[in-house]
């Protein structure tokens, strides 16, 4: 895949994450190239979110290495620094700023991209920048169909819209790589289909690379360029959607066939 000349964005080498005696991720290696939509799938507890947390700096891996655009980020790089480098994420169990309005959620994510300091911000000396940030935030909300709800408290939004707000908020950090952790969880088939369109649209509009964890197979098969499959922390298959779909080990893992059967 790297052979087609596209720039490598994310490189994971032999990533292992242990919690006490449990090995959540075991020697995972993968790569994601510029502009791709890559999915990480696997049964519950396979270690997908742990892999995400290692990429975003929430966990420091037990061993192995994660590199973003050629720079190692797996040791001593805090989550906020990683976001500043250009990786944004959404959360599986929605983590909005619950007491803040929809618009404020997006504005808060823009905070680190603004140049003002605490003094100029307090004394409102950077009105032009504040205005620019404001209009960019409104644009992101419009794109996710949330503009008419901008002054609503985010916790009051219906579930599906909260997921869209998470995406808008992640995009507000101006990322190069977007990590989506089960963005379709709790959505009905129609909403899921719309989400597929949304993901493709934002990928093209913001020239993003997308790394997605999801259980909705129809969504994954429709939008992914490539798929990696995890089971008990180990990579068991990878390749184009069709190849993975036909892979016997993947079918076994999902149907729960015992390895020694």
């Amino acid at each position: 895949m790297a052979g087609d000349g596209r720039m490598n964005i994310l490189q994971i080498n032999e990533l292992t994450m242990r919690f006490g005696g449990v090995t959540a991720v075991d020697g995972l290696s993968m790569e994601i190239n510029d502009g791709e939509i890559v999915a990480l799938i696997g049964p519950n507890g396979a270690g997908k979110t742990t892999a995400f947390n290692c990429v975003t700096g929430v966990y420091e891996p037990t061993s192995g290495k994660v590199s973003f655009m050629g720079k190692e980020i797996s040791r001593g790089t805090s989550p906020d620094k990683i976001t500043r480098l250009g990786i944004a994420r959404t959360f599986q169990n929605i983590r909005l700023f619950r007491t803040m309005t929809v618009l404020e959620n997006v504005l808060a994510a823009k905070h680190m991209r603004t140049r003002h300091n605490v003094l100029t911000a307090t004394l409102q000396l950077s009105r032009r920048e504040e205005k620019r940030v404001h209009s960019e935030a409104l644009e992101l909300l419009e794109e996710q169909g949330l503009l008419h709800l901008k002054d609503e408290i985010s916790a009051n939004l219906p579930y599906g819209l909260q997921r869209h707000l998470e995406i808008a908020r992640a995009l507000a950090t101006s990322p190069r790589l977007l990590l989506l952790d089960e963005p379709a969880a709790g959505m009905n088939p129609q909403e899921t289909a719309e989400l597929a369109d949304t993901i493709r649209r934002i990928r093209d509009k913001y020239s993003l690379t997308v790394f997605i964890i999801e259980h909705h197979m129809d969504l994954i098969m429709r939008i992914s360029d490539r798929i990696y499959v995890l089971d008990f922390g180990k990579l068991i298959a990878s390749g184009a959607p069709r190849e993975v779909q036909a892979n016997q080990r993947v079918i076994d893992a999902y149907l729960g066939v015992a390895n020694d059967a």
Partner: peptide, 16 residues
């Protein structure tokens, strides 16, 4: 306020 509402999310939005 973002930090008050959710530290993990605030950090993930690039807030030190």
């Amino acid at each position: 306020r973002a930090i008050r509402d959710d530290e993990r999310a605030a950090e993930a939005m690039g807030i030190n």
